[in-house]
Computed example of a mutant assay.
Amino acid sequence: MFPKVNDLVYIQVATSDKPDEKKECKSRIADVEEESFLIEVPIESGSGRMKKLYIGDELSVYFLTEAGIKNYFNTYVLGFADDVVQLVRIRKPEPESITKIQRRHFLRVIAELEIAIKMKDGNQFVTYTEDVSGGGVSFTYQGHFKVVQGEQLFCWLLIPYKNGTIEHVPFEAEVVRIKKLDTGRLMVMLKFISISDMERQKIIRYCFERQFDFRDR
């Protein structure tokens, strides 16, 4: 379940700086402790620069299993250790908090989240989702702009988590179905066609939180 020594891990650092927030870094597990991992200082993908981390930094991490499955977890920086090179100590997650991306069967939950839509003709509007999943979302709107099946939309989804943090998830999606409701509103069903794995994981994390909410009722 956990990554092993010498396994590569891919990291995004939670930050208010939007350009930095989307940068992915690569590191390697140097040692596994009882309650933490020691990792090499991350290297930014593309630039090759070392990413300076600070105690308390929140990280989104994924690693690959031997079968090529991506496993995600959230963690934070505990401190540092000096070996031949400086290492970063991060909190080991609870095993049940590690999630996998399943390409065909995403958990779908009912959720009223704010979503901004931009059409290819430049028209824009804001509405709310009916449900969300790691594979796509559905939303309703009044039909003031004509959306057609097969059209590609640029979207931004606002996701509030139980800990109070808020994420903005950008993606491009294709309209797969449109249904007229009894209220006169239209329901539009979308599937993701362009979304980064880290952004998809933010949605999957929200879906798991919602699922636990339903179980507790």
Rank of each mutant, 00 (worst) to 15 (best):
M1R: 08
F2S: 07
P3Y: 00
P3S: 09
V5Y: 03
D7A: 01
D7R: 05
V9Q: 07
I11Y: 01
I11S: 02
D17K: 09
K18Q: 14
E21Q: 14
E21I: 09
K23W: 00
E24C: 06
K26E: 11
R28T: 11
A30T: 06
E33C: 04
E34K: 13
E34N: 11
E35V: 03
S36V: 00
I39E: 05
E40S: 12
I43S: 06
S47Y: 05
K52R: 13
Y54A: 15
I55S: 07
G56L: 11
L59R: 02
L59Y: 02
S60G: 12
E66F: 05
A67R: 12
I69T: 12
Y72W: 15
Y76T: 10
L78V: 08
F80G: 08
L87Y: 09
L87A: 06
R89T: 09
R89I: 08
R89P: 02
R91K: 15
P93R: 06
K100R: 15
K100N: 11
Q102L: 10
R104A: 09
L107T: 10
V109Q: 14
V109M: 15
E112L: 08
E114A: 06
E114W: 06
I115N: 07
A116C: 03
K118M: 10
M119D: 07
M119N: 03
K120P: 01
Q124A: 15
T129F: 02
E130M: 05
E130F: 01
V132S: 11
V132R: 04
S133V: 04
S133F: 03
G134P: 04
G136S: 05
S138Q: 08
F139Q: 07
F139I: 05
G143E: 06
H144L: 13
K146C: 05
K146L: 10
V147P: 09
Q149N: 14
G150E: 13
F154L: 09
C155F: 01
W156Y: 05
L157S: 03
L158Y: 12
I159H: 02
I159N: 03
P160V: 00
N163G: 09
N163D: 15
N163P: 04
T165L: 12
H168F: 05
V169W: 01
V169G: 09
F171G: 07
F171D: 08
E174Y: 01
V175N: 05
V176N: 05
K180G: 13
R185I: 01
R185C: 11
V188D: 07
K191N: 12
I193K: 12
I193P: 08
I193E: 14
S194V: 04
I195A: 06
I195S: 01
I195T: 03
E199M: 09
E199Q: 14
R200G: 07
Q201T: 04
I204R: 03
R205F: 05
Y206L: 13
C207P: 01
F208M: 11
F208D: 07
F208V: 11
R210S: 11
F212R: 14
F212E: 15
D213R: 07
F214M: 15
F214V: 14
F214P: 00
R215T: 04
D216I: 04
R217G: 12
